[in-house]
Write a protein that binds this DNA or RNA. Structure first.
Lengths: 174, 174
DNA sequence: TCTCCATATGTGTATTATGCACATAATAGG
DNA sequence: CCTATTATGTGCATAATACACATATGGAGA
């Protein structure tokens, strides 16, 4: 706050509303009937709607415990506990005790689960490329940089006191 | 696409993955126990988890029909139909026939509902200001601009063919 | 106008998902 | 060692969700 031109007084309200609107739109798209999921389903592997996001998160952030996973998902951990158990029974994730803290039974992606998320990754990248095809490289790089910065700041501020933003579709956004 | 430096060959994959990670993080935060909701709850008005996002969307985009709402929420429209009915019974939204197309019974925010979303808006703006307080104005403006552009492009590409991205928490992101 | 089909909405019903109350095991501090 | 806290899990009641149907309207064309 000591620097030159910080965001302070201006007509931030309007900009914030725009930003919120954009976020709603983005989350909305992420909540759509999910071609990713559909694709996986067509591949013969049916995966429940609720399990899907968890699998992706486990692949991304695993090994990860039930509590942290639940926190991220915005669901009660008992719920997530069952879902992770289901993923385990489907051989999509594996569970193992954490040697440092033996209370936690971390979830890690399994080979079978990885194969599935790999498919999704491919589909996602395909979409990403299609979307940014017409973008100038500078804008693209800036979007990534600022989005990361935003994500960082927004998650760092947790527990501070302010409220949250609303997405829209509900807990999904797989 | 005729311009100088477009996003094409480079190491986009990595950047896309970063972007996806940031999105997951953001959605994750939006899925959190929701202080907004909690705040509303503390204000004496309890609102079901699933109803909350719909109310916000109706306020933002209303008048809006059940089908479009369901599409955005990523839920079956029969589900949304019931939820909108519930919102109506709570006097948070009003419904009215569309004169042009009498099949649709649009949902609009009611005074009572607006009062509620106003509270949320205030909380959200408070958080937004806190987060961007330390941002340089230029970065903030760019984030808004690029995020909007991204939202526009991503929603415009729907139905094209590519898959979607995954958020994380599941359908919520209220 | 009369069909035939697509679209918007709603209801019945069965299945899931979710969360609260409890319970267990392990860690942390005193 | 005793107590508080944290991570995980189970029983159970409730809410959410979706599929099968059903109704009403809109639209294109015979």
């Amino acid at each position: 706050m000591t620097s030159t031109k910080n965001v302070q007084n201006t007509h931030i309200s309007g900009k914030l509303r725009e930003l919120h609107g954009a976020l709603i739109e983005i989350v909305s798209v992420m909540n759509r009937p999910q071609r990713d999921e559909q694709m996986v389903r067509e591949a013969g592997i049916s995966l429940d709607r609720a399990l899907f996001p968890l699998l992706v998160t486990i692949e991304r952030l695993g090994p990860i415990g039930v509590v942290e996973l639940a926190d991220r998902a915005g669901r009660d951990y008992t719920t997530v506990s069952r879902q992770v158990a289901k993923l385990e029974s489907l051989d999509l994730v594996e569970r193992r005790g954490n040697t440092a803290d033996r209370r936690v039974r971390e979830a890690v992606i399994s080979p079978k689960g990885k194969a599935m998320t790999d498919r999704i990754d491919i589909a996602r990248e395909r979409m990403g490329r299609a979307i940014f095809e017409s973008w100038e490289e500078h804008d693209f790089n800036e979007l990534v940089r600022l989005m990361r910065k935003f994500a960082e700041d927004i998650s760092g501020d947790i527990g501070n006191g302010a409220g949250e933003t609303e997405g829209e579709g509900g807990p999904q956004a797989d």
